[in-house]
Design a protein around this nucleic acid. Structure first.
Lengths: 243, 243
DNA sequence: ATTTTTTCTGCGGGATCCCGCAAGGTCTCG
DNA sequence: CGAGACCTTGCGGGATCCCGCAGAAAAAAT
């Protein structure tokens, strides 16, 4: 059994390497990649089925890498080892995990033991392991309590990219009015809505821009989510026959 | 001579500790803090004049911490040791460094030797050390080439926070029209401006929102910059007598 | 199958945004 | 002092946004 590490910080890489050797005596080889690109390549070439990776690498996003790896070999087991439990990351991951896949998500702040336990659970016991903090995010995000619908999230991304109502309508096959409906919904859920009447406009906000701001502050959105969205968008634009 | 480390990642902390002991034999004590708050406190209590810190910590932003530390004792020497050379960070740092202060900015990806050299230069030789990559950012940002004026950056932040033209005008003591002028300028510099006429509006953009998006993608803005701005804003709002 | 609930859609209007045009200001430089 | 560069401000108008109102369509519940 071989394990592939995809992580750009050399310190963390060697720490992981050690942890893996310690936790998995049955492992007879540890490979390292320092970014998503070479990680993908190694995974492909070596048919590694056991991967530990960081989200958020400079060269190529962890989520991107995981997506293509899973696309090629859905049975691959991946342990995401990340600094953050941003909703954007958690949502990003759970969006791409194939049905029935074995994976894990543990934070770098977790203890040594937690990490080693997770390694064994995933690679030996075929059991998913998700850190409590992350699990918390997941539920908050999927449950309706203070959670966002797929539709709401989608439109949030669209305005974060800077699209107009019309462009969004076009992209999502909706009428302009429907887009605006979804927007209102979003504004309400983000607590940005101005209940009207109250003319204590201390600092009046541009709802559209404000929504993006609070989404960022609440980590519903982050840099890498935006990057992915931007890539999707330009792909879609290229596919448009020009009207 | 004592050195204070402010860094939330335990791995990096112990690595730093070792590097400091190796590079600075004249150092007779290394202290560690795992977030900005306790870092500030330790700096104050122990009157440490030599600090190495990470930007981007969960508890309290490195820039915030540095600001208050420098406010209390401007002669403190600080080496920023960060993962990123985002323009937002670089600008944030150079905005708060006191006149004549000795400081450094090196990336975590730098070699062992670079780090140790920087430590000696700053703490012993009283010389500023800024990594090449960072220096590059700095010049791009301060020089007029593809760089942003203070005014432009300011208004960028204001729209990123979601303020309306009017609110910005009020906050910055300008007329609404001037705000809009600055906005146009910003749009042009961000390459978002629609030269008019060209009706190939594939995906028409909402300029205001789009500007924020590209600023984020280009890392002119990032989460921590936004957080700081948000804090400033609400402080300002609280100070407003309500009109 | 019928009611209830949710979502989609058009209409309309007030607020806001985007920006060309033009008339002052300030500041520098020859 | 005047020319030129730059910033600020008012005016005006077309485009966009925000959203209440209300009917149509779809989905879910009974």
């Amino acid at each position: 059994m071989k394990v592939l590490i995809i992580e750009d910080d050399p310190l963390h890489r060697s720490y992981l390497n050690e942890a893996i050797r310690a936790a998995l005596p049955e492992c007879d080889g540890v490979l390292e990649a320092e970014n998503g690109n070479t990680g993908e390549r190694l995974a492909r070439d070596l048919k590694s089925a056991h991967i530990v990776m960081d989200l958020q690498m400079s060269q190529r996003n962890g989520i991107e890498a995981a997506r293509t790896i899973w696309k090629e070999r859905p049975e691959t087991r991946i342990l995401f080892w990340s600094n953050y439990s941003d909703e954007a990351y958690v949502r990003g991951v759970s969006r791409i995990v194939p049905a029935g896949a074995v994976y894990g998500y543990v934070l770098k702040s977790a203890s040594d033991d937690r990490l080693k336990l997770a390694l064994r659970s995933i690679f030996i016991e075929s059991q998913c392991v998700i850190d409590r903090e992350v699990r918390g995010m997941q539920q908050k995000s999927l449950g309706n309590v203070n959670g966002f619908t797929e539709a709401e999230y989608e439109i949030l991304i669209d305005i974060a990219l800077g699209l107009t109502d019309r462009a969004i309508a076009h992209r999502r096959n909706l009428s302009v009015r429907s887009v605006q409906n979804r927007l209102q919904q979003l504004y309400v859920k983000l607590g940005v809505y101005q209940p009207l009447g109250g003319q204590d406009d201390d600092g009046r906000f541009n709802l559209r821009a404000r929504a993006v701001a609070v989404a960022l502050l609440r980590k519903l959105l982050n840099h890498s989510a935006l990057e992915r969205a931007e890539a999707d968008l330009s792909a879609w634009l290229a596919r448009q026959p020009r009207d």
